[in-house]
Each structure stands twice: as C-alpha cells, then as structure tokens.
Amino acid sequence: MSTHPVTFFSPGENADEVERTNLLDLDREGLRAFFVELGEKPFRAEQVMKWVYHYGVTDFDEMTNISRPLRERLSEIAEIRAPQVLNCQDSADGTRKWLFAIGGGNSIECVFIPDEDRNTLCISTQVGCALDCSFCATARAGFNRNLTVSEIVGQIWMANRSLLRDHPQGERGVSNVVLMGMGEPLLNMKAVVPALKLMIDDMAFALSKRHVTVSTSGVVPKMDRLHEAVDVSLAVSLHAPNDTLRDELVPLNKSHPLDELMAACWRWLADGNRKKHIMFEYVMLDGVNDRPEHAHELVSLLGNMPAKVNLIPFNPFEGSGYRRSSEEAIQRFAKILRDRGVFAIARRTRGDDIDAACGQLAGEVEDRSKRWRKFAEPRFGERA
C-alpha cells in the first residue's frame, strides 16, 4: 500500500468569496440554458464543455475560441471546481482510493479498479447513506446530505486527471463508472440524472451507456423514473432470496418487497432489447445467506430474467457482526446457480488492504441521521 501527497489538482481553490455558478453542476442542457440567459448563443456550452472535459482546462482565460469579454464575464460569475483531494492510497493489487473533502467536516471516498479489459471507477452519490443495510460500513457511518452534480462528476474528473498525471499515455483512464460507492443513488435523483447525462455525453466524459451502471438497493418508484430519464445499466443490491431475510439485511425491503422489486426489474427490461440484463449484487455472509437452500430460492426468484449474479465476498469492518463466507461455500453457491442456468460470477476482493473493497467505504460523515443508535442494538446475524 502507498499513499500519495495531496497537493495536486485543486481547481477553484483560490476563488474569492463571490458566489459563482460551478459549471460542473450543469449538464449540456443546463449549460446551454446558462449561456442563453447571459445573452449568448447556446453553442457556447459545447465550446466550454470541450475545454473542461476534453482538455481539463479550468481557467477561462485559456479558452481561446471564446471572446475576451465573455471570458472575463465567466471569470466573474462562474467557476470550474471539483472536490478537493485529501488523500490518495494505492493498494497492493493496483486499486486506488481517493478521499475528497466536500465541506462541513465531511468527506467521501471513491475507488479506481484497474483490470485487463476495463478500468472501473466506483463513485459516491451521498455523504454517508440514507439507508441502513446491516452489513455495510457506509450505513454505519450515518447520513449527512446528498452530493451535488459537481461533487459526483468531479470524482471522475479528478480521478482522470490524477491517472493521467501518473500515466501520460492514457492507458489507465476511466473506462467504466459504477455508482456503487457511498450512498443510494436513487435517493439523489436531482443530481444523479444530470451527472449520468454528463458521463455518457460525447462532449463530456463520452462513456458508453453500457459502461455506466447505477446500483440501487431497490427504491422501486425511482427505478422507473431513472429508466425514463437516461439509458444506463442497472445493478440491484439483492443480498437475499426471500423477504424475511432481506427485511433484516436490507430494511428498505419492508417498503418495497421482492415482488415489487422484481416487477420493476422486468419493467426495466421491457423495451425488447434482449442485449440488456440486470446485475444482481449478492454479498456472501457466512451462515446467513450462503446456504444451498438460499441458492435454490434465488434461482426461483430470478426465473428466466436476463440477469447476472455477482457473488461478493463480505469485506469485514470493525463491529459488523458478520463473517465472510468460505471460498468453498461461495463456489458451491455459484455452482448451484450455474447448474440451473443462471450466469454467476464469484468476484475477487480488491483493495481490502486500504479499506476500498465493496461495503467498506465510509469517509468522514457528520451524521445527521443518528444512525449509531440503531446499530447500537444487537442485530440479525451478529455473532461473537
């Protein structure tokens, strides 16, 4: 594990006290409206986006195809400001984790996971999490607020700049983004939707819509709204094959039980594009949800849905009360799924030596939810 200095890339840090519009908060439509309001032509939006997202320029004076009067005006009323890097750590397996300051004594984390065929960035959408899944370190940290658009896309923007600094040839840039970090994305739709539009916009991050994935614990009404708003991939944090067990592991299930959740998944797939599938995330908890009967229940739950099941070894954290399933149990579970025709992947744990593995992101959260009171009581699955 290595730790990097934290003095690089702090755009906007010398700005004065005048409140400015952060252009990273605006998708293409919003930026076009911004320029029209200034009395400018809408195409100024595309010009500025190219400078910001393609060239990483934050100083309006460097945007030479824009008139000097407009550059001066933008310097007065606008800024390009991403979250400030507090810390950057490298895992022995190549995973990298950033800690970003976002004000108010709060910080968030995001993780870069390089692989042979993709370079994935796992980003956060909330400060903490508004849900209380019992096996998740982020849930234990509590909840403070939703992130803004600039705080969401700023993680990608800063990660790309950091990676480019270390790899000037560009072979380590971000190719895939998953909204699986801190927070429940669908409880922050106001910021998440424009952020997603920026990720797949050719003038911004230009990611393939199939390479941008939103993970949800099952906020059913918002799943439908997301499908209508933007075309990206979907992952569902399932973790249990029946309502009784899922009520304990993912308490949101009490509001949106499995029959509602699975119906929403089928609606997501209902446009006739059989290339689509849904990824189901399933954290493997020793003796809790990893028995053969759970695997058979999961097969029945999924039926003939185009789906992939991602079996995730539980990543322990202090006070969790859970243990990771054995490798034997995980492989047995995967075999049952595969033998019944379900595509199943047993994921490798990445970045656990720097607490960057799935479920370990916590950052620093000034908790307004008083979540600690709920977790102070013994919960299902806790063991000595």
Rank of each mutant, 00 (worst) to 15 (best):
R274H: 15
R267G: 12
D93T: 10
S107G: 08
D352K: 15
L196C: 14
Q360H: 08
H296T: 15
V192M: 05
E76K: 14
A263L: 07
V57T: 04
T148W: 02
R68P: 04
M180R: 01
D259S: 13
G142Y: 02
A376I: 03
F60M: 07
L226M: 15
L196Y: 06
L23G: 10
T213L: 11
Q126L: 05
Y53A: 07
Q84W: 11
A159M: 09
F205E: 04
Q126F: 07
P292T: 12
M63E: 05
E297H: 10
M305G: 09
F317H: 08
E151K: 04
I312N: 13
V192G: 04
L99F: 02
E328H: 08
G287S: 11
R73Y: 09
G12S: 04
H296K: 13
K335H: 10
G12E: 11
I108C: 02
D117Q: 09
D25G: 07
N242G: 09
A195C: 06
I330E: 03
R161A: 14
N304F: 10
G303L: 04
N253P: 04
I77S: 13
R73H: 13
H256T: 06
L186W: 02
Q47W: 04
H256Q: 00
L131H: 01
G183E: 01
G128D: 03
D166C: 02
V36E: 15
R145P: 01
E281T: 08
H227L: 13
P114R: 00
A130W: 02
T21M: 11
F333R: 02
L302F: 11
K335A: 15
N273Y: 07
K275A: 11
D286W: 12
D25Q: 11
P313H: 01
L252I: 09
R246W: 05
K254L: 05
Q360G: 13
H4N: 11
R348G: 14
E260T: 03
